[in-house]
Amino acid sequence: TEEVEKIVRELQKRGVSQEEIQRILKRNGIDPRDVEHVVRRLR
Rank of each mutant, 00 (worst) to 15 (best):
V4L: 15
T1N: 09
R41K: 15
E2W: 09
E5W: 14
V39W: 07
R27C: 04
T1Q: 08
Q22D: 05
E10P: 01
V4N: 01
S17K: 08
I24D: 01
G29P: 02
Q18N: 13
R41P: 09
R43D: 13
V38L: 10
V39T: 05
R43E: 15
Q22T: 13
V16T: 07
K6N: 06
R33Q: 06
Q22I: 15
E36G: 03
R41V: 11
D31Y: 01
L11T: 00
V35N: 00
K26P: 00
I24H: 06
T1D: 08
Q18R: 12
V16F: 12
I30S: 03
T1I: 14
I21M: 10
Q22R: 13
V4P: 01
K26T: 14
R41T: 11
R9L: 06
D31G: 03
R14P: 01
E20K: 06
G29Y: 02
R23Q: 13
V39I: 15
N28P: 05
R9M: 08
V4T: 04
T1E: 10
Q18T: 15
G15C: 04
I24W: 07
G15W: 04
V38R: 01
E19D: 12
V38Y: 03
R40K: 10
V16P: 01
L42Y: 04
R33K: 13
P32S: 05
D31A: 04
E10F: 11
V4Y: 04
R9T: 05
D34L: 15
R33W: 05
K13F: 07
R9S: 05
V38T: 03
I21S: 00
R27S: 13
R23E: 13
V35R: 01
Q12N: 09
H37S: 13
D34I: 15
G29Q: 02
R41H: 13
E36C: 14
I7L: 12
R14D: 06
R40H: 13
E10Y: 12
V38S: 02
L42N: 04
V35D: 07
R40G: 12
N28I: 14
N28G: 09
S17H: 07
V35E: 01
R43S: 14
Q22H: 09
T1F: 13
R14G: 08
L11E: 00
R9W: 05
R43P: 11
E20T: 08
G29D: 04
V38K: 01
V35S: 02
D31E: 04
G15K: 05
L42M: 04
H37V: 12
L11C: 15
N28D: 10
R14E: 10
R40S: 10
E5N: 05
E5V: 09
R9E: 04
P32H: 04
D31Q: 02
R41N: 13
I7S: 03
T1P: 10
R23N: 13
L11Y: 05
D34S: 05
R40A: 11
V16K: 10
V35Q: 01
I7H: 05
S17P: 08
P32N: 03
E5T: 06
D34E: 13
E20I: 06
I24Y: 06
V16E: 07
S17F: 03
V35T: 02
Q18W: 15
D34F: 13
V16H: 12
I21W: 07
E36D: 07
R9K: 09
Q18D: 14
E3T: 09
I7W: 10
V16M: 12
V8T: 02
V35F: 10
H37Y: 08
T1A: 10
E36K: 04
E3H: 10
R33I: 11
V38Q: 01
H37N: 13
D34T: 15
I24Q: 07
V4M: 07
T1G: 06
R14Y: 11
T1S: 09
V4K: 02
K26C: 03
R43G: 14
S17I: 05
K13I: 07
V39S: 02
V16D: 02
P32I: 06
R14N: 09
K6L: 07
I30G: 01
Q12K: 08
E2H: 11
R27T: 09
L25R: 00
R43L: 15
I24E: 09
V8W: 09
V8Y: 14
E5A: 08
D34W: 14
V8E: 00
I24G: 00
R27F: 11
K13H: 08
P32L: 05
E5P: 01
E5R: 04
R41S: 12
I7V: 06
R23T: 12
I30R: 02
L42I: 10
N28S: 13
D34Q: 11
L42P: 07
I30M: 07
K13R: 10
